[in-house]
């Protein structure tokens, strides 16, 4: 139930007193409340839980682990494996 899934914002609009939008989850679009990610714009990725966006995903942070893996690969390579 604590499942939060990443999706891509494809539409932002105001619905009465709430900031809402459409988020695409690998081809399936759903209505999502964007009240707590007020600066999200189409193209941004957000973590969504029970129809509610909790945070915007940080692209630079997302790449960090791959840089680490690459570094590890080089160290292994350098050690003559």
């Amino acid at each position: 139930m604590c499942l939060g899934i990443p999706g891509k914002v494809i539409e932002v609009r105001r619905e009465r007193d709430l900031l809402m939008g459409k988020v695409d989850f690998g081809g399936v679009a759903r209505k999502v409340c964007l009240e707590h990610v007020p600066d999200a714009v189409p193209g941004d990725y957000v973590i969504v839980h029970v129809g509610f966006a909790l945070s915007k995903l940080d692209e630079q942070e997302a790449r960090r682990i791959f840089a680490l893996l690459e570094e590890m690969g080089q160290v292994e390579g350098g050690a003559g494996q």
């Binding site: 139930m1 604590c2 007193d17 029970v50 129809g51 509610f52 909790l54």
Partner: peptide
């Protein structure tokens, strides 16, 4: 309304909006 802190904002929002509306 069950859940950990992850679910709390969405659940709180439903009550907050219900009171406002």
């Amino acid at each position: 309304a069950v859940g950990f802190e992850t679910t709390a904002p969405a659940n709180a929002m439903s009550v907050y909006v219900a009171r406002k509306r």
